[in-house]
Each structure stands twice: as structure tokens, then as C-alpha cells.
Design a protein around this nucleic acid. Structure first.
Lengths: 327, 327
DNA sequence: CTGAAAGCGCTTACAG
DNA sequence: CTGAAAGCGCTTACAG
């Protein structure tokens, strides 16, 4: 392995000069610069990041903490984070937290010892004191941890209103809202958005709390639909729930979208694979991840961050579970 | 930050002794051990992994190289890798390669400089010389890189035969096989398995090559079905393709499973969300990831690895796209 | 603008 | 069984 020493020797300068040149810190004469450059080239020298870390107490590692990569919302997020990180020379460490504070703390700790540069956190816990007093740069996704920590999220409330209105505009008179878990910030915002739109309309509605889980959603919808034949629209707080609702309806022999229209929220890839295709309020998950990563890297590199709150617009995607679109 | 020096001072021994004790290397007297233990406790000392890495040229980082985490097959794999890694004190770095050799090499290189302990690789390229002459422990998923590198995969061939037979046993007389890309090892094995079963049966069949991509699969199936009304069974090399086939059939007004039965391969979560639920040859992806990780860690820690080839059994899951199961 | 030297926090022969 | 010392490969005041 060739070291900075070898380069210094070959270039006829000291290691300090090589280091300074390589890091762009401190003055280096044009001659020295030239000598170092060609020595680096000839020897194909590459800085040892571990040795550097030990000195600077910094690394180019970014931690991505999310509940579970297996949840269809996260892979695209992870992809975006990795893509942007790579562009800026960072590497991402994957941390599944299962929303378990102990696991989170554990990761935080382990990685801090490795001089990790910062974290992107998608935590669903409503308070997380272990994040608050961290010295490291953090960016939160989907929920504000505190006002010091930049947050990226979708405009959930508006999005939910859009989704609800899509149903209303297509003639739904009696809507079931599959509300997400109360602990989830985004779920609550979506609930607000639903309420905004439904109350403005004067239409009848029901709200049922329902986890973001396929078969539970199917079961809950199945039971509800049996007891409430009058339901002609379902707005679900997540696509997975919407998929459960759709399956329940199809299984009950209810025609979608003729008798019952359904709109989900998320925009995951599975939506188009269903029959009929799932209409949904699509989040730009990739963009969220990309923004979060860019903001994080800015903070890591001490560049000014203009905002503390980034809201990514959501987009209504109409497919076969609502009227007017064949598919 | 408390260092090994502080511990040594408090325990009244040298740093060498503390290091030896902490690493279980070399002799340490009972007295010294006790003194060090309590010093560590009192100071809540934790070894600095970066400093250690610089000496040992080792780390507890594992690289997971996969084509794209966004592909529904990989999140569960990543989850398994991370779970097992965590258990053994390793941390996983996520690397999306897009099956691009340059990106792979780049990651290999970057992480080698960080003294990464080893790699788990899911590469679809048929040859990968840059893996062959690596000094680091590697475990391959789904394809053998060379005979030095342990490989974990499903019994694709048998599985495909099972899937085909499931169709045959349910009365299919004219089967369309959606064959996966020729570059993919597993896809070829599945083709073999299909051929084994179909030739033994004497039934009619067609083979069409088709990428593991939803809308392409839908399109290809749509066209084929229009031209070949006699098809009564489709076996797809992946669930995503099967989902495309199902959508094509449903859109054409073909009744599944009455007129056309479909079986996929993979067992991804989406399968049960479809209507009807997708029958499939399910891989135990989690298990594959877990085995690969355990094998890798054994190699990293120089423990004996008994086998070089691990085949994880596949399981037929019958749902609504084949006859005899409501749903 | 440059180099000698100390230091980041460990590990590991080596001598005792 | 133990400690002094060198070394892993860098960075960073400091003096010049």
C-alpha cells in the first residue's frame, strides 16, 4: 500500500505539504503542487480514509435510520439517499430500527464511534430525546424532531384533501376514511386533510383507524363494508391499506370503480400492478430522499442551509379504482 | 472521550495490558483483568473502532452489493443481512450497483480503503473478474462467481419444475413460459426446470423471453394472449412478470383462474395483494440473506466453512390464480 | 510557503 | 504475565 510518505518522498517534499495540497488547506507553491500531483499519479496514491478519520474525527459515512426497509415505502427512499450520497462521496449505512428506541440508540452510538458524518432519520416515534441532544448533523423525514433539525415531508394535508376531493368529484356520497395509526405524524396530517375536504363538502363519512398493513386493512374493510353497504368511496391513508380495501371489495363481489371507488396514498410501485390499477396520492419519495441527503451534506460541510422545513408536493395519480380512467 | 490510556491509568496497568485483555489476546493475570474490568465499567470506556482499524486493517463493516434495492426482491434480503450482521456486531453498507461493473468496482475500491471486512454480492453479470482476484471474503447470492466463493441460491430448477407441475396438475394443456433474461443465472435454471417438467408431460408450450419488469411483461403477455387464445396457463420466472401477465389477462377480460391459470416465482409480498392472489414458487429470501451473512462472517473470522454451495428450498404457495383455492 | 514533530487511539512484536 | 516502544497513515499547530 502506498502511503503519503511515499508520495512525499517521490515529490521531494514533506508529508505535511502533501497533506495540505491534498486537502486544499494551507498554502502550497505551484512547484510543490505540480510535484505532488505527478507523484500521486505515478504511484496511484489514494488517501487512507481511516487514518484521516482518526485525526479529523470525521468520516464520509451517512447513517440511514428507517423503521424497516421491507416496508414498500422505504426502498425508494434508500435508493435516493444512496444516489445522492454517492455523488458527494459519501457512503450509506443501513439501519433498520423497527421503531425501537433501543435499536436506534444502539445504532446512533455504534456509528458515532465510527465518526459517522450524519444521519437521516425516519422515525415514527413522537418524541426522541436521544436525537435532540446529538452533536451530529441530522435530517428528519416525515416528522419534526425539534426545530433545530431540518425536516423533509410531503404536503400530507393538502394531498389528503386532493385525494378526498377526487372521490367527491366523481360522485361519492358516503366515504370511508381508513385513518392511519395515531402515533404517526403524517397519518394525522392526512386525517386533517381528509376532514378539511369532507367537511367542506357536506358528504357523509366514516373514519376507521387501520394500520398500514395489508391483511389487517383487508379484514377491517371487509367487516365495515358488510355492515355499511352504502359506502361508495374509500380513501386510505396508505397504498397498502388501499390494496387491502380493494381486495376486500373484490372478494365481496363489489365492483370497483362502478359501485365503489378507492384512492390510496403513497404512490408505491405496487399500485399499478393491481387490477384495477390503484388511484393514489403519490408522494415523490425519491425527491424526499434526495433533498434530505443534500440538506444533510450541506450541514455536514458547514454550508448554509436556507430552510428548516422542506415540503415536497404530492401528485394525484388516477388509475382504475376511480371512474373515468380505463385500466 | 475516554481512551485506553485513561483505562490503563485507572487500572494501574499499561495500555498494552488493557488492549490484550479487551481483545482476549495474550495473557493477562486475574488481578489485572479485574482492575481493567472495573476501570472500563467506571469510565464507561468503549474501544475506538477507527483507531483499531488503522492498526488491524480490518473493520466490522460489511458491504451489500445489489442491483437495486427498489427491486422488490431485495429489501427482504437487505433486511436479513442487516439483522444477522447486527447480531454479530457488524454494520452494513448499502451499495446499489445497477449491475454496472464500474459502479461495483468503484464501491469495492472505496470500501476496501475503509478496511471493509467482506462483501455480499448479488450481481447479475455473468463474469466479474474484479471479484475473482479480491483478497477479501465474499459470498455470492444467486450465482457462482468462481469456485473459491461460496454461493447461496434457491433450488431454482426444482422450483420451476414444481411451479410448472402445479399448472399441469390443474389441467393446463397449453402453457406459456415467461422466461427471464438470458444473462441471469437463476432465470436459466428456472428455464431448465420448466423444460424438465413440460417435456416429461408432453403438454404444449411456448417460451417467450421477458424482462423482470411489470409493464413490459404486461405488454408482452397481452400481445401473446391475443395471438394465442388457446393458452390456459402461464408460468412466469418472476412475480413481477406474473403480475404483468395477470394484469394483461384481466384487462383482456380473460377469467383467472377459470380460463387461465398463472404461477409466478419469487414470493414477494405483493403477490397476496393482487386479485386474485398470485400463486407462486416462493423463495425464502430472508433465509438466503441470513445464510449468506453467516457464511460471510465465518469467513471473515476465519472459522471453517463446511460447504461452498448452499441451496435454500423453495416453496409452492397456491393462491387464487390457480384453481382450487378461493381468494 | 514549508518541514519537523506531536498527536489521533489503538495493536503488537519484543524484551524481560 | 507485563510494559516500553514503535507503528498504523494521516493532520495540524508551530516555528521558520
Amino acid at each position: 500500500m502506498t502511503t503519503i510518505r511515499d508520495v512525499a518522498k517521490k515529490a521531494g517534499v514533506s508529508v505535511a505539504t502533501v497533506s495540505r495540497f491534498l486537502n486544499g488547506s494551507g498554502y502550497v507553491s505551484a512547484d510543490a503542487a505540480k510535484a505532488v500531483t505527478s507523484a500521486v499519479d505515478e504511484l496511484k496514491y489514494e488517501l487512507n480514509p481511516v487514518a484521516r478519520s482518526l485525526n479529523t474525527k470525521q468520516s464520509n459515512l451517512i447513517g440511514l435510520i428507517l423503521p424497516d426497509i421491507t416496508n414498500p415505502f422505504f426502498p425508494e427512499l434508500a435508493r435516493a439517499v444512496e444516489d445522492v450520497a454517492l455523488t458527494y462521496g459519501y457512503t450509506v449505512v443501513l439501519c433498520n430500527s423497527d421503531e425501537n428506541p433501543e435499536k436506534e440508540k444502539n445504532y446512533l452510538n455504534t456509528l458515532k464511534k465510527k465518526y459517522i458524518a450524519g444521519f437521516i432519520v425516519t422515525s415514527n416515534q413522537l418524541d426522541a430525546p436521544h436525537y435532540a441532544n446529538m452533536a451530529l448533523p441530522i435530517v428528519a423525514l416525515d416528522r419534526a424532531i425539534n426545530d433545530k433539525i431540518p425536516t423533509v415531508s410531503s404536503n400530507n394535508r393538502e394531498g389528503a384533501a386532493m385525494g378526498t376531493n377526487a372521490l367527491l368529484e366523481r360522485g361519492c356520497k358516503n366515504i370511508l376514511f381508513l385513518r392511519g395509526p395515531n402515533e404517526l405524524n403524517p397519518a394525522n396530517e392526512r386525517y386533517q386533510g381528509f376532514m378539511d375536504a369532507i367537511e367542506a363538502s357536506g358528504a357523509k363519512y366514516h373514519v376507521v383507524t387501520c394500520p398500514f398493513h395489508f391483511s389487517e386493512s383487508q379484514k377491517i374493510t371487509d367487516e365495515f363494508l358488510k355492515a355499511h353497504k352504502e359506502i361508495d368511496g374509500i380513501f386510505a391513508s396508505s397504498d397498502v391499506s388501499a390494496a387491502g380495501a380493494l381486495k376486500a371489495a373484490v372478494t365481496l363481489g363489489i365492483k370497483v370503480p362502478e359501485q365503489l371507488q378507492i384512492v390510496g396514498f403513497d404512490g408505491i410501485a405496487m399500485g399499478e400492478m393491481l387490477s384495477p390499477g390503484l388511484s393514489t396520492v403519490a408522494q415523490d419519495v425519491y425527491k424526499m430522499g434526495a433533498i434530505a441527503t443534500r440538506v444533510l451534506i450541506k450541514r455536514i460541510e458547514n454550508q448554509p442551509v436556507d430552510q428548516h422545513f422542506y415540503e415536497v408536493p404530492v401528485q394525484l395519480k388516477l388509475r382504475g379504482t376511480t371512474k373515468g380512467v380505463a385500466e
